[in-house]
């Protein structure tokens, strides 16, 4: 066993849509080690969304193996997958996906609620996570009282709060202007610097360039997998 936190072997995912069968992933093998910063790229239809869903345990592969943090997770039940998502994965979405009526603090607490943590500990952990992303003074604000960059940082705090094995970001800067995008990318770089494993799905080369390693998918297969020069800038 290596220190691969994600180990994928021969992963395939087929969808049956009416009479057609769509081959979204056709045998992908990939290993991501602890504290790597990986960008997954590819044009639309390359299978990167499916890849993201499988990596995030939102979807299960049709065949192949997926080991996450030493556990085989490709054949788990719905509830077991929910548990894995809760403990091992921190999602950051393009559209932030914050609950509009809840404060920043409550939003960040959410994964801990499903982890069954007591209120007081939850509050402390969520507050600490918000501090980590520089929003200590915005805890009681609702999403609509925050800027886009701040909202995404609340989402990042929420992703981090349960100390996941991987931070999984899906086009995290897709809804942000370029200045704010840079700010978010700096946050990712800092987290990576602190030892966090980051996997980011994007179609923007500028954004992918922030990662230390870029995996390009095409037609459901890995087209290229290389380290970049600007690693951990």
């Amino acid at each position: 066993m290596s220190d691969g936190i994600i180990r994928i072997r021969d992963l395939a995912r087929r969808y049956v849509m009416g009479q057609e069968t769509v081959q979204a992933l056709r045998g992908v093998s990939l290993e991501i080690r602890r504290n790597e910063y990986v960008a997954i790229m590819g044009p639309s239809g390359s299978g990167k969304s499916t890849m993201m869903n499988v990596l995030g345990c939102l979807d299960t592969p049709t065949s192949g193996e997926y080991w996450l943090n030493g556990h085989e997770v490709s054949r788990l039940s719905d509830d077991a997958l929910a548990r894995v998502r809760n403990k091992e994965i921190g999602f950051v979405f393009q559209t932030f996906n914050l609950l509009p009526r809840a404060s920043a603090l409550s939003n960040v607490e959410l994964p801990l609620v499903y982890a069954g943590m007591r209120t007081r500990e939850r509050r402390e952990r969520a507050a600490a996570a918000l501090e980590r992303v520089g929003l200590a003074n915005r805890m009681d604000h609702r999403p609509n009282e925050l800027s886009g960059g701040q909202r995404q940082r609340v989402a990042i705090a929420r992703a981090l709060v349960n100390q996941p094995s991987i931070l999984l970001a899906d086009e995290p800067t897709g809804n942000l202007d370029s200045v704010t995008s840079e700010e978010i990318m700096r946050t990712f770089a800092e987290l990576h610097g602190q030892g966090q494993t980051v996997v980011m799905v994007t179609h923007e080369p500028d954004i992918a360039a922030h990662a230390a390693r870029v995996v390009v998918l095409r037609d459901g297969r890995v087209e290229s997998d290389r380290s970049t020069e600007r690693a951990a800038a």
Partner: peptide, 16 residues
């Protein structure tokens, strides 16, 4: 629906 999806992605089980 979106909120439900989000909650599930954050670890909510069906029973939750």
């Amino acid at each position: 629906t979106r909120e439900i999806g989000l909650r599930k992605s954050l670890g909510a089980r069906r029973s939750d």
